[in-house]
């Protein structure tokens, strides 16, 4: 039995499941767009004010959009018994959760990072900071997907895990938010943003290496109870 074939199959399964329900896919983007549109109305349309707050706004909204999306990561698979089967599979669960994470990151994080310059433009973010915005979101959303997945795996057995998951993962999202918006802020003020991005990349490495351990353990606990 080729393990590699299994992970590829799981990845194709996850991608097919996500792409065949595009509503869910666009929900995060729509949420992002809606909230961003509200800020000029609330703060006033002057580009100076908006531009000043733009890095923080963009990052906070991205964080919330990520939290909304990641909550349902394991839910349907848990409810229909797919997670049971995954647990009984001979392949290590550590690797089996990777396709879930990769799909979540690709379809939520990467997509958001790619369109984020558009929203940056709406908030008057200087064009020079667009690269830092996209790069920081690209890296940071990966970290947030993994952290959010730990919360999702822990709360998947509960009927109303929504609020709990927010309470669980928000503290862990904070360093990502700090360094993510810091990277954009640095680019706005003309300082080199690469140290921030390097820190985000280090967080991503750590999250990808250790996160699946926690996710696997959390799934086993959820299935057991």
């Amino acid at each position: 039995m080729a393990g590699e074939g299994f992970y590829r199959a799981m990845l194709r399964r996850q991608l097919a499941l996500s792409l065949r329900r595009p509503v869910q896919l666009f929900n995060a983007l729509l949420f992002f767009a809606l909230v961003i549109v509200l800020f000029p109305l609330g703060l006033g349309p002057s580009p100076e004010t908006l531009g000043e707050f733009a890095p923080g706004i963009l990052w906070i909204v991205a964080l919330l959009a990520n939290m909304l999306g990641v909550e349902t990561l394991f839910r349907s698979d848990f409810e229909d018994g797919s997670v049971d089967q995954l647990l009984l599979a001979p392949q290590p669960l550590y690797f089996s959760v990777m396709p879930y994470l990769l799909t979540q990151w690709l379809l939520a994080g990467v997509l958001l990072a790619l369109v984020s310059p558009l929203f940056g433009l709406m908030l008057g973010l200087p064009v020079g900071a667009m690269g830092a915005l996209a790069a920081s979101l690209l890296l940071g959303s990966g970290v947030m997907s993994v952290l959010g997945a730990i919360g999702a795996a822990l709360t998947v057995g509960l009927r109303r895990g929504g609020m709990l998951i927010a309470l669980l993962v928000t503290p862990f999202y904070m360093p990502v938010l700090i360094f993510g918006s810091g990277a954009v802020q640095a680019a706005v003020t003309g300082v080199d943003s690469s140290p921030y991005l390097a820190l985000l990349a280090a967080m991503l490495c750590l999250a990808v290496a250790l996160g699946p351990l926690a996710i696997a353990a959390a799934l086993r606990i959820s299935v057991d109870s």
Binding site: R21, L86, P90, Q91, S96
Partner: peptide, 23 residues
Amino acid sequence: HHSAVKPLLTPRENLRWHPAGER
């Protein structure tokens, strides 16, 4: 009790990409 069959996938895909990890 739960059949792990995804409504969005066809029967063939459900088996080809089954999470039980058996080829």
